[in-house]
Amino acid sequence: MNVFRLVGDLSHLLAIIILLLKIWKTRSCAGVSGKSQILFSLVFITRYLDLFTNFISVYNSVMKIIYLVTSLGTVYLMYFKFKATYDSNHDTFRIEFLVVPVGGLSFLVNHDFTPLEILWTFSIYLESVAILPQLFMISKTGEAETITSHYLFALGSYRALYIVNWVYRYYTEGFFDLIAIVAGCVQTILYCDFFYLYITKVLKGKQLKLPA
């Protein structure tokens, strides 16, 4: 473990908590893409199938459980408890256009052609594009609540910090996982224009409005 990955994980956890609290406190999921949340739940489910068979550390197991429970909890709040506030008219990204190519690619490019490894690879590729429905929804509505932009900043920062972690691990222990690195770079690049807007607008107290 290194500080970059630890801060990255905490940033990821913070993002998930911010979103959960936003929905729970305001009793509304306006402006939040339920499709992205479904994809994130799918990412965690397919990635953590080894939760009970491959013990790494208490921290690792506890975080996996927290991610699984909170992401499924968010999907539950959005599609059941606060379904009336779910903005399905703007959450229209066709996620089959993500799941199918990602599924195909995970069969073609992976570390090992075994079910567990292919599902892990699927999870890594899917995570890199899972935010697209959310970014698409914001581009359609043209704006995002400030709390939602904080969520996105924390979520985008997590994988950016993981890239620093991979550089660090390459130079200190010679470890590198090309699949995770390439997918992580794609994932972080997708946030670039949001990061620009967040830093130039939200941090100056303005609301996040995308140029129409």
């Binding site: 992976n110 570390h111 090992d112 090309l178």
Partner: peptide
């Protein structure tokens, strides 16, 4: 197939 790596990250 790429070199198998240990899965110790989240």
């Amino acid at each position: 197939k790429l070199a198998a790596v240990k899965k110790d990250e989240l």
